[in-house]
């Protein structure tokens, strides 16, 4: 009987008064170490490695929108020189050529439909990277503006708003309707 009583009294509790301090220190540690800045950039998907025996699928000349960037960063768009500032409008015109609501008509030198339109960017080996990014940015902005327009048709203020309300795994209808088809051509070896 006496033994049991003694054991009860031996119970020792861990002091919890400093728990808060420990937790606080941990918090500070993680606050300091985590980086909050998000990486931003222009996303692209490279074409898979081509099988040399398989021919690439044929693309009709009128559907191809060729952009050439030379060593000085100047553009040759569809064999005509063009300033970068006008590129966005030209890309939009090419992609949305035969879509009724856009009012571009259906010009024979532009694409047949947004699905067929391919934007091809080709650079030289000496082209400055900055110039290439400028061109790629303008092409993407053209697509973003088209998507913005499609989102407004569906009653969303912008494409961003439309995309944010999508459930994970839900189909992005606008992107499926107008796919961005940008091809990066390999520069000629020099």
């Amino acid at each position: 009987m006496g033994l049991l009583e003694k054991r009860k009294r031996e119970d020792v509790e861990i002091p919890t008064a400093s728990m808060a301090d420990i937790a606080f220190l941990l918090l500070i540690f993680f606050l300091v170490t985590t980086t909050i800045d998000v990486d931003t950039g222009i996303g692209m998907v490279l074409p898979p490695k081509l099988d040399e025996t398989v021919e690439p699928p044929p693309v009709r000349e009128r559907n191809m929108f060729k952009i050439l960037v030379n060593e000085e960063g100047r553009l040759l768009v569809e064999d005509k020189p063009l300033p970068v500032s006008q590129l966005r409008a030209e890309v939009k015109k090419h992609v949305m050529n035969c879509v009724p609501d856009y009012g571009y008509g259906c010009l024979p030198e532009y694409s047949e439909s947004p699905d067929d339109a391919v934007i091809s960017i080709k650079t030289a080996r000496q082209t400055p990277y900055d110039a290439y990014i400028q061109v790629l940015d303008e092409v993407w902005m053209a697509y973003f503006e088209i998507w913005d327009n499609e989102a407004r048709k569906r009653g969303y203020p912008s494409y961003e708003a439309y995309r944010n309300q999508l459930e994970p795994g839900e189909e992005n209808e606008i992107r499926d309707l107008i796919k961005a088809q940008i091809s990066i051509a390999e520069p000629d070896p020099s």
Partner: peptide
């Protein structure tokens, strides 16, 4: 195949100078 050209936000707004 998934790549990302890291770039900064354009502060001035309009590109295409």
């Amino acid at each position: 195949l998934r790549i990302n050209y890291s770039s900064r936000r354009d502060v001035a707004g309009g590109t295409g100078s």
